[in-house]
């Protein structure tokens, strides 16, 4: 059992938790994730490692409440226990000193990209973070990002904070202004990652995307997480979750994420009625 040590709400329906998980914290690396199961009837759900502390044996996660399991996790308070946590899973993001690195994140992609951003900075890169949010109330991690980046460019879809526009607009402007970029890491909604990849392809910039297909085991056993990369079938949980964004079939990933839409809705409605 894995005890929740601390909890905060960062924005509406976006929560941060600190959980006791010494074995995961021991070897965690940026870009890796865990799979948790809340209780005996629970689903196995992946979440990226936000932060971790090896000495004190805890990990931190940030999640958005989107369906039954994440809403239910959102009701867990410090002292409550999660039944299963396994990890760290997936390959760590390949970090080196590329020179000028840009991390582009959208929405809850921000915390997912945090660990990679920090690792890029620690490796000596000049780091620019482009972070997009729906509107002012959803802006998270601004201070954290300021601390680790050389430059932080925040944008909101509706212009209620800093500026109006999507991350794609910001990246385009940034490149058009003549900034030299050697490496881009992108994480967030699939459509955003696809459009970012389209832009960087034109400029010939090495780009990696962190993919989030539906997963079951997270250990390479089921193939639910399969994605097409460069025409080959890859399992995101063991071969990824990061892949060369210019080779990923994003359209396929988009429809694969919708597979359980009706069932997810049914589970959520039942949960909200108190049927869980």
């Amino acid at each position: 059992m894995f005890e929740i040590l601390d909890k905060k709400e960062l924005a509406p329906h976006i929560k941060w938790i600190r959980v006791n998980a010494p074995l995961v914290a021991r070897t965690a690396k940026a870009g890796q994730f865990i799979v948790f199961r809340l209780h005996e009837r629970g689903e196995r759900v992946p979440l990226t490692l936000f932060k971790w502390n090896k000495e004190e044996g805890y990990i931190e996660l940030v999640f958005q409440e989107v369906g039954k399991t994440t809403y239910e996790l959102g009701t867990y308070e410090p002292g409550d226990k999660i039944m299963d946590i396994v990890g760290p899973l997936g390959r760590a993001t390949e970090i080196e000193n590329f020179g000028n690195a840009v991390v582009v994140s959208g929405g809850v992609g921000a915390p997912i990209g945090y660990a990679v951003s920090k690792a890029l900075k620690d490796a000596g890169n000049k780091l620019t973070i482009i972070s997009g949010f729906r509107s002012k109330e959803f802006v998270i991690l601004e201070d954290e990002f300021k601390k680790i980046s050389d430059e932080l460019l925040i944008t909101t879809d509706d212009g209620s904070y800093v500026r109006k526009g999507f991350t794609t607009d910001v990246l385009k402007e940034y490149l058009e202004a003549g900034n030299k970029v050697d490496y881009v890491f992108t994480v967030g909604p699939v459509i955003m990652m696809k459009l970012i990849a389209d832009i960087t392809k034109e400029y010939g910039i090495k780009t990696y995307a962190s993919l989030n297909p539906i997963m079951v085991d997270g250990t390479g056993m089921c193939g639910a997480c399969r994605v097409t990369v460069g025409g080959e079938i890859k399992f995101a949980c063991v071969d990824g979750p990061d892949f060369d964004a210019h080779l990923v079939d994003f359209n396929e990933l988009m429809y694969r994420l919708k597979e359980y839409k009706e069932e997810e809705k049914e589970a959520m409605e039942r949960y909200l009625k108190g049927g869980a």
């Binding site: 079951v216 639910a224 069932e263 049914e266 589970a267």
Partner: peptide, 30 residues
């Protein structure tokens, strides 16, 4: 081959056996 509704036997059977999807929505895995 990657269309929705195409499973490996492992995924299909794991959802049903290990995760008890046959008892969805009493169990969470669909």
């Amino acid at each position: 081959v990657n269309l929705n509704g195409i499973y490996s036997a492992n995924e299909f059977l794991t959802r049903i056996n290990l995760m008890k999807a046959y008892k969805f929505p009493e169990y969470d895995t669909p």
